[in-house]
Nucleic acid binder design. Structure first.
Lengths: 401, 401
DNA sequence: GGGATTATGCTCGTGCAGCGAGCATAATGA
DNA sequence: TCATTATGCTCGCTGCACGAGCATAATCCC
């Protein structure tokens, strides 16, 4: 190389730019003055950092609508119209979805396809195709991929999904697009991230998210960060032995909480055979209970108690500030909230009962996992490496002096 | 104030000094060259930072013993002989202990007193007295206080301790010494911190620590940081409903795991009345089982199964890399390891069974909670605020130019 | 309508901290 | 004795943020 190449490999200090960019991501309508205040920057630094971000095509400044307050009007700092985007994929029971997300979290209308009956390779090939179309449409603006999948994710692989009937599939590898970073996680984990960062648990230091579809998924969020353990499989609360110790679970263990709270539990309590589609069964029972069927009502009540009791135990163990519920958990909570709450309270240690963490419906019942996948994908964009690579892609080759 | 006081309130950039100081804390015998390599510093920066730390009386440099390797011999960077120390207090069932810890983690021989039968105020007054003696001996070298206490800690208070018979005591407030920061936590939490940072779980990204004395304490460690929830009460795994749903727990809930694994469980299984001192009862049963008493042996086996099964569930939910055991959990594991392991494995989800997280004895069965309290106290010293205050105490009043 | 008030934007000089090249130093080994 | 190896130290350089001072642009109030 030429002799003029001194100090090129040097680590760039981009802390300030990242702080500002993350703030813009979390508060899409912001101003320089707000940035300076919230991030503890001087106005001079704010000016300089915003100027650098503008030069990189990451943010734009436009005239802000007048607030009517005194003082020189500020300008709005917004995401750049041609700034970075990420792709978010969610693979669920019968369908998959693919959406593009912008800085600030805005999700474009997702593309959606049914995949029931297809083999994993077929499904993933279709999604990969769609991803390549997205890549073609957005070019280098597409920076990362977040994948949410219903099932247990460990070591970056989908190790087991009873819902999908898949086992040990390297979903991330099959969806990877050339140089883009991929993050993959369980759907409940992803939805929990969305709730903690922009949903019902916004601002909570520690939050517990509980989602029931078939079985229970969940996650603890610590300041918006999912605590997923050493391999990424953390949050499988459904396989805590809260249930009948003799009842075998498809997971291989016995007494799993899973078996006491979903469609399988409702069918069993009602004396019906194990359902082929537990989620639909659950919806049917909930409808009947809502319509006044006493047997259905009793079954829902029983499941509500099992749910509340388990959540009480989890709150004892994990000490969240708030508990968000989605899927069947939210539906049961709607229909039999008193039963859930009563069992929850009586499952709490005494000192917690005077001010228990509230149980709240999730803010994103439909697209939480897509939103969460987008958030985690953006985490890789809003990092030193992500900023460096954006800069490298945006600029022509660096010139030697 | 004088006009020369420009920029005094400015935040000092001390990242490099803190990085080096933390490295010295974790690796007490180090060298400049190692610091530069491990922290990614240039040798020039290492020189400068070490010089600054020396000037502040935080580290010393001495001739290192020759390694026999080629090259200019390096000098050892060690904690300063008159550098900062912290006090660590552990309040347990019958005694309390107070120890002084140095940078690097070395613990001086603890002072120990029995307190059985005394009221909380008396006990804490005695400890406070001892702390003031420590303060008198070490002066401003004493920088922080870490308190470990057996019981549930929430919001900085001891809210409930069945072991001590205390309820809602503001231990931290009663032990605070004038301006020093105080950190307080549950004894199992503190012991877990010690295991994760310097003990059996060193290097594990996520570790689960399980301690049984009376009931179960525990904690998840994430890269050495205790995940204690929103109020600090996280880790009360003993109050997960793994047990008989009808059995009432003194905590107010039912079916708690606590009741299935400690001296109370052993007594119940043996048909004995509830013991007054469950830990001694447990030790006695363990001795009889070790000596070959078949009834005792069967009871220990049963408890071993309850322990293993619960740990399996926790591993499913929390996904640690390793599980460390102490107290009665370690003793049961020694005596009935096969039963613990078998129940553990059969409680795991199938995909985990080919390579389950190992169950390991804790490295600090005796003084883990003291060591952990010292570690957390040192965290406050090895922070920007801690460094600033050390600088302020060490130097005379800043001069105005 | 015109100053007073309030708030934000911009420029510029300053300081800190770390980089890295080059040279000095101090051991081993042939 | 001199090459080799490794560390220590000096020094000029650079990136980044600070903060004072001034410019700018709105509303408020007489």
């Amino acid at each position: 190389m030429s002799a003029g190449e001194v100090g090129r490999a040097r680590a760039l200090h981009v802390r300030g730019m990242l702080d500002v960019l993350r703030h813009v991501h979390l508060h899409p309508e912001t101003t320089r003055a707000e940035l300076a205040r919230d991030l503890g920057l001087s106005r001079g630094s704010a000016t300089e950092i915003v100027a650098r971000l503008r030069a990189l095509g990451l943010v734009e400044e436009t005239a802000a609508e007048p607030t009517g307050a005194r003082g020189r009007p500020t300008r709005a700092v917004r995401r750049h119209d041609r700034g970075p985007v990420v792709a978010a994929v969610d693979v669920s029971y019968e369908t998959w979805r693919l959406a593009v997300a912008h800085l600030g979290g805005e999700l474009e209308e997702p593309r959606r396809e049914r995949h029931r009956g297809q083999r994993p390779e077929e499904v993933l090939a279709r999604i990969s195709e769609a991803l390549h179309e997205t890549r073609a449409a957005f070019g280098t603006r597409l920076r990362a991929l977040g994948v949410s999948v219903t099932g247990t994710v460990s070591g970056g692989r989908l190790v087991e999904s009873a819902t999908l009937g898949w086992r040990d599939v390297d979903v991330a590898a099959r969806l990877r697009i050339a140089p883009l970073p991929v993050v993959i996680g369980n759907d409940a984990t992803m939805a929990g991230v969305a709730e903690a960062r922009r949903g019902a648990a916004t601002g909570a230091d520690v939050a517990l998210h509980i989602a029931i579809e078939v079985g229970i998924g969940g996650v603890v969020l610590d300041h918006g960060r999912a605590t997923v353990g050493s391999t990424g499989a953390g949050g499988e609360f459904g396989h805590l032995p809260f249930g009948d110790p003799d009842r075998p679970c498809p997971c291989g263990a016995r007494g799993c909480w899973d078996l006491e709270v979903d469609g399988r539990a409702l069918a069993r309590i009602l004396g019906d055979p194990p359902p082929a589609a537990p989620r639909s069964t659950a919806d049917a029972v909930l409808r009947r209970a809502g319509a006044g069927d006493p047997a259905a009502r009793a079954a829902v009540d029983r499941v509500a108690q099992n749910l509340g009791r388990g959540i009480g135990g989890l709150v004892n163990a994990l000490d969240p500030r708030i508990v968000t519920l989605s899927g069947l958990a939210a539906a049961v909570f709607d229909l039999a909230g008193d039963s859930v709450r009563a069992a929850y309270r009586s499952g709490l240690m005494r000192f917690r009962r005077h001010d228990p963490p509230p149980l709240i419906r999730a803010a994103f019942p439909q697209d939480g996992s897509l939103r969460g996948a987008a958030e985690l994908a953006f985490d890789t964009v809003l990092s030193e490496a992500g900023l460096d690579s954006w800069r490298a892609d945006a600029r022509p080759a660096p010139e030697t002096a």
